[in-house]
Simulated assay, not measured.
Amino acid sequence: MNEYESSGVAAGIGVVAGIFYLAIIVLLIAGMWKTFEKAGKPGWAAIIPIYNLIILLEIIGKPMIWVLWLLIPCVNIVFGIWATNLLSKSFGKSEGFTVGLVIFPYIFWPILGFGPATYLGPSAAEAQNGGFGNNPFNNPNNPFNKPFGNQNNPNDTPPPVV
């Protein structure tokens, strides 16, 4: 193979890779577009760089100061993952879906947009638990949340006075 043939093969590989890359980007934007529409926001906002962050913050129910945190280098990684987690919670998804959105966004954004997930609200009322993590005050199995005394046979007499 001479010099001209190898450069033609390289150019062909580059064109195919470029088309594949553009197809992935279009799929990602389409997933974001449909996700925004599911949340009742304009879908076209997904393609405008800073405005899509503002709409995302409206979807997850966070204040506009978060735009600043999402633009500061190094801080934006933490707040971006946090916002992604709140987005998946707003659609009733788990932390595993958040990991998928962070690692494989070109797969999980279309799943979120075109799949059966419905928008439940800002962070789905803090993940239907009153807060994230182990909140002992909303756990029905927590023995400290049970009312005192025997509720099946309440004793209406006051305790003896000593």
Rank of each mutant, 00 (worst) to 15 (best):
E3L: 15
Y4L: 09
E5Y: 12
E5S: 14
G8E: 12
A10I: 14
V15K: 04
V15D: 02
I19H: 06
L22Y: 01
L22F: 14
I25L: 15
I25C: 11
V26F: 09
L27Y: 07
L27F: 09
L28M: 06
L28F: 03
L28A: 06
M32Q: 13
K34N: 07
K34L: 12
T35C: 02
F36T: 08
K38M: 03
A39R: 10
K41T: 05
P42S: 06
W44K: 02
A46Y: 03
N52W: 07
L53P: 05
I54Y: 12
L56C: 08
E58N: 15
P63D: 13
P63T: 11
M64N: 04
M64L: 14
L70D: 00
I72F: 07
P73V: 01
F79A: 14
F79C: 13
W82R: 03
W82A: 00
N85A: 08
N85L: 10
L86P: 04
L87A: 09
L87S: 07
S88E: 15
S90R: 05
F91C: 14
G92R: 14
S94Q: 00
G96E: 05
V99N: 01
G100Y: 02
L101D: 06
L101R: 00
I103M: 12
I103C: 12
G113Q: 13
G113K: 06
F114N: 12
G115H: 13
G115P: 05
T118R: 14
L120C: 00
G121H: 08
P122S: 15
P122M: 05
P122L: 03
E126H: 11
Q128H: 07
Q128D: 15
N129R: 13
G133I: 02
G133N: 09
N145T: 04
N150I: 08
N150R: 10
N152Y: 12
N155I: 12
T157Q: 14
P160Y: 10
